[in-house]
């Protein structure tokens, strides 16, 4: 599952991802990272069975944890189903249905935002 982690000026200085990996003996796949001197935000993918333990460890170090359930959102009003986004998605989460309508596979989406920046109709947004 996908977790959004927020680091404050204190936690951002500690090697918390490594600590979580070791203590929960889980593999964390960093999907997105924006880390500055005063704060940080990460999106990590964790295997389903280990998620609970990882969240517990992260919280014990003072990290704010949110689980991400929603994928990139497509505005039905704006989308014309051109498919410009399809080949941009790094994980092949976007495709056509049988009627040639654009559909997002919500479980595959890794929240990278690549598609958001290429949509000619500005119909895609990260929740």
């Amino acid at each position: 599952m996908m977790l959004q982690l927020k680091f404050d000026p204190k936690t951002v200085k500690k090697p918390i991802i490594s600590l979580a990996t070791l203590e929960a003996s889980a593999l964390l796949n960093i999907i997105r990272a924006s880390v500055g001197p005063r704060e940080g935000e990460l999106v990590v993918e964790v295997e389903e069975g280990k998620a609970e333990k990882v969240v517990e460890v992260l919280k014990s170090y003072g990290v704010e944890v949110h689980s991400i359930k929603k994928a990139v959102e497509r505005d039905e009003e704006k989308c014309v189903h051109c498919g410009a986004c399809i080949s941009i998605c790094p994980v092949e989460a976007i495709g056509f249905d049988d009627e040639k309508r654009v559909v997002v596979n919500t479980t595959k989406c890794i929240h990278c935002g690549s598609c958001v920046n290429v949509c000619p109709m500005k119909a895609l947004a990260l929740p």
């Binding site: 014309v80 189903h81 051109c82 410009a84 399809i86 080949s87 092949e92 056509f96 009627e99 040639k100």
Partner: peptide, 23 residues
Amino acid sequence: SGKVEINGEEVRVSPLSSIYMAE
């Protein structure tokens, strides 16, 4: 089909026109 081969590798394809709207 959404995929073409270039230099032996599969490359993904995006349409820019909307087949759905054309229909």
